[in-house]
Computed example of a mutant assay.
Amino acid sequence: MTLDLAEPHMLVPANLPPSGEHRTLPLGGAIQVTGEEKHLDALQPLLRPEGECWAYVTLHEIVEETARTSKTVVEVRVDGERVGQLTPKMSGELLPAIRHIAEMEASTSARAIVKGNRIKAEVVLYVARAHELPDTWLNGVADRKPPAAAEAVVAAAAVPRTQPREHGPIPPPPTSIRFTVPPEWPAPPSGWVPPPGWRPDPAWPPAPTGWQWWVPAWE
């Protein structure tokens, strides 16, 4: 087993995943976002002294109207704020996936690298194109059920307001786990978890037989 870690500032995202129901597209090749220079204020919170970071973005289908015609493109947002868009050609590579996810009443998220400083910044998506998505991933999206919270709201709305209801017991707090590394490996930052496809550095010693990678957070 090997452990291949990125630079410390690239180990974890600079922002939280999108709130609400969403699906994150698998990792893929680079796609350059355009128009970032118009949205430096929105990118400012993500800029790092090291010059780059990775972040969650959301992708949205929009229609741009011009004097002569209209075109459908993909708008890129960070934490709900527009930071640019894709060219019509590159938008066409992702729109089928975005529309498929929208049919599931969810938004589309992706991973991106943000580079630059307060006077010049750029955003690059690393995402699989629509034709590259495997059937297993597409089926997994289609098989997802609405979140339990949404189902609870629907169920509550179906109960007449005049009908008395008793409160059930308060559930216990959710248990949580954390990632642990063997004693001879470098200690990761607090709260770090391995990203998809992560492998240890081959120069590190093998993990002990039966090593428990995940333990309760309070241990």
Rank of each mutant, 00 (worst) to 15 (best):
I62R: 08
T69G: 00
E65T: 11
H60C: 00
Y56Q: 04
A67L: 12
I62P: 00
R68T: 14
L43E: 03
E64I: 14
E37D: 07
A42S: 11
K38R: 14
E64T: 12
T66F: 14
P49V: 09
L46R: 06
D41E: 06
L43K: 04
H39T: 07
T58C: 03
L43D: 02
W54M: 03
R68K: 14
L46N: 07
A42N: 07
P45D: 10
E36Q: 12
R48H: 11
E65M: 12
V57K: 10
L46A: 12
C53M: 11
A67P: 03
L47D: 07
P45K: 08
E50G: 01
C53P: 04
V57F: 04
H60P: 00
T58W: 02
P45E: 05
E50P: 00
P45C: 06
W54I: 07
E52P: 00
E65G: 01
W54T: 06
T66I: 03
V63H: 05
E52L: 10
L40S: 01
H60S: 02
L47I: 13
V63T: 15
P45R: 03
H39V: 04
K38T: 14
R68D: 15
E61A: 09
A42P: 09
V57H: 10
E36V: 07
A67S: 14
H39D: 04
Y56H: 15
E65Y: 14
K38P: 03
R68V: 12
P49W: 10
W54A: 07
L59E: 01
E50Y: 01
L40D: 01
E65R: 12
Y56L: 04
D41L: 08
L59V: 07
Q44Y: 08
E37W: 04
H60E: 03
E37P: 02
H39W: 07
E64A: 13
T58V: 08
E64V: 15
D41R: 09
I62N: 00
V57M: 03
L47A: 10
H60V: 02
